[in-house]
């Protein structure tokens, strides 16, 4: 390993922090993946987590996932709320016995030492109604700030996890703000350089936050989105049907079908942000996405990677 360049020090560079985490988890034998090329609400939606958490085969992966939460947009005016942000996601199946220690070690490499900082595991049971998933674990606190989510998956896509996978989700912007000592996310130093060569998080994302906030809350074409939801739902079902062999014992289309499930979920989030879904309808949309997720999970178990 070459000596770390000063501009990649995690305490002064956002990308340095990402690289340090990748390097740490690569060292633990994880495959380092790239973000999934679709809009998702959280790193969990990446098939490398949702689908790979199912079935008996071991799986260790880590990746950054841009996450879109249309409703959380604040037109770039809130110091720490974003409609697009990065999660660093680690999934280890089966969950290793020293997972908590590994997590603490990973904090150390980004400059958070447990001699100096008060790190706490505070109860937080995780549930994703759209994914039909739940797990037990904690939110991890550093000096009173939630910096990660730590979950032992018990069920995903309505299927019991056997074996259980451990999932770590780092809120990268928050962690970076903490280690850089910055109060406004847009002030984060992205590339770790100074003077003219410094690029901030705001340089990269502020305009996008403004534009997408307007899009999400005011302009997104709801007629089109309602149509897209239906289309994605139908396509998902169609691909699921087409993927089964004659005996319905094997499946060969779980991944394309799941893409449509992700699509439906994101379209729903946009519709929700536009405020065109009533409280009662909301529940039924969530249920419809969950049905898709469950069917995809079932199909996945009949694929090779799903252990069939």
């Amino acid at each position: 390993m070459p000596a770390a360049q000063a501009n990649l020090d995690p305490s002064r560079s956002f990308q340095g922090l990402i690289l340090a985490l990748q390097e740490f988890w690569a060292g633990q034998g994880c495959v380092i993946l790239q973000p999934y090329d679709m809009e998702v609400g959280a790193g969990t939606f990446h098939p490398a987590t949702t689908l790979r958490a199912l079935g008996p085969k071991p799986w260790n992966a880590a990746y950054v996932q841009p996450s879109r939460r249309p409703k959380d947009g604040r037109y770039g005016e809130n110091p720490n709320r974003l409609q697009h942000y990065y999660q660093f996601q680690v999934i280890l199946k089966p969950s290793p016995p020293d997972l908590q220690q590994l997590y603490l070690d990973s904090l150390k490499v980004i400059g958070i030492s447990s001699d100096l900082h008060d790190i706490r595991f505070v109860e937080d049971d995780w549930e994703s109604p759209t994914l039909g998933a739940w797990g037990l674990g904690w939110e991890c606190w550093c000096d009173g700030m939630e910096v990660s989510q730590f979950t032992y998956f018990q069920q995903v896509a309505g299927v019991e996890c056997a074996p259980v996978a451990g999932e770590l989700t780092y809120g990268l912007e928050r962690l970076a703000m903490y280690v850089q000592g910055v109060d406004r996310v847009y002030d984060l130093n992205f590339n770790g350089l100074d003077g003219d060569r410094k690029v901030t998080y705001g340089d990269v994302f502020l305009q996008a936050e403004r534009e997408y906030s307007k899009h999400n809350f005011e302009v997104a074409d709801t007629g089109m989105l309602f149509e897209q939801f239906k289309m994605a739902e139908q396509a998902c079902k169609k691909y699921l049907n087409a993927g089964y062999n004659a005996e319905r014992t094997r499946h060969g289309m779980a991944l394309p079908a799941y893409d449509q499930c992700i699509k439906a979920s994101h379209v729903f989030n946009l519709l929700d942000a536009r405020g065109v879904i009533s409280v009662t309808e909301r529940q039924s949309y969530i249920l419809r996405v969950r049905e898709l997720a469950k069917a995809c999970g079932e199909a996945w178990l009949m694929t090779e990677a799903g252990g069939a």
């Binding site: 008996p56 089966p94 969950s95 290793p96 016995p97 049971d125 797990g135 037990l136 674990g137 032992y152 018990q154 996890c161 056997a162 074996p163 259980v164 451990g166």
Partner: peptide
């Protein structure tokens, strides 16, 4: 009130459950 399975053992039926992994 809620318990969980964990680790490699969790794939076996009847695996031990506890509130969080028991060490």
């Amino acid at each position: 009130p809620k318990q969980m399975r964990w680790g490699a053992d969790s794939a076996r039926p009847g695996a031990l459950t506890w509130v969080r992994p028991l060490h």
